[in-house]
Design a protein around this nucleic acid. Structure first.
Lengths: 158, 158
DNA sequence: ATCGAGAAATTAAGCGCCTTAAATAAGTAG
DNA sequence: CTACTTATTTAAGGCGCTTAATTTCTCGAT
């Protein structure tokens, strides 16, 4: 079997791909500008993960940390940044445990947040455009198996 | 088409997976210990990329930067670390351009380096064990397309 | 021959993400 | 009421990456 080679290739490609995905994107900058958002807004992969998670409803900081597979302080920090830029806000569950901080989109920012994610998705979609439906699905399945195998985030079952 | 969902899933899984891959591994620690390598040795994904690249022969710092898709200073820094730990060494091409610094495994470290990579590969191989040959291949193909599509590293054609 | 443009690597400064340890605050059990 | 646990945040520090500036060297043109 030639899995040896494939393993090396993955080890070689994955980090490079992530660096590319994380980096700034011209189209993204334009999007920001057209929405009057400060240019220094950098939406990192972690921020996108949070915005996507929130699209399924409000989450506590702890939940976000678990979904992203990072420590609680890291989640706090990511939320900090998004709050600074007015994308999300912290709330205290009214009747609930007052220790937990619930994070959700800021009042009128839900659409803006979706727009920002859209910009991010566009790059991926463009890449997927070169593949057939089956190839895309096969790739995602592999990703699922790997993520699960590494004992990473549960992924918040749909 | 449900590509929308798949795109979100990828955006959600990829960063988490990379964080998991980059993190420390118990088995790896044990491997280090048995080889008398200082415990503080942290082989990041970038370091692994360099070690793999070197398995195809010596590379200049500039070449490494290009292959990894990072800036020259970043490559210098990664090499610095590997040199500190005695894994690789810098050489001046004898007759060649004296500006270029050639990086290669340290004299007797080639095998050790391969061993370290092996530990890293093991985790991936374990994950791949859950997939059929075709699935693995499909995944890698997707990875190739994505990496290329993002204009990332050329990958150093085999 | 030497002078200046350009290229390879490094150094310097700085930012962002992540971690662990410690501090706060709030619920829970005795 | 005290002691233990849990949720979040603050604090300190490491690493990887970037751009700008420096050093050293090559090379072509005058």
């Amino acid at each position: 079997m030639e899995r040896e080679r494939l393993v090396d290739e993955v080890l070689m490609l994955m980090p490079t791909l992530m660096r590319a995905i994380g980096g700034p994107d011209p189209a993204e900058m334009a999007e920001f500008a057209s929405r009057g958002i400060p240019v220094d807004v950098r939406v990192s992969p972690g921020h996108v993960q949070i915005l996507i998670a929130l699209s399924r409803g409000p989450h506590s900081v702890g939940e976000l940390a678990q979904v992203l597979g990072v420590s609680a302080p890291a989640a706090t920090q990511l939320v900090d940044r998004l709050v600074e830029h007015g994308m999300v806000e912290r709330r205290h569950g009214a009747t609930a445990d007052r220790r937990v901080v619930v994070v959700d989109y800021a009042p009128r920012m839900r659409e803006v947040a979706l727009g920002l994610m859209e910009v991010r998705r566009r790059r991926l979609k463009a890449a997927f455009a070169r593949m057939t439906d089956e190839e895309v699905l096969a790739f995602v399945r592999g990703l699922r198996v790997l993520t699960e195998s590494f004992g990473a985030a549960p992924g918040e079952e749909n």
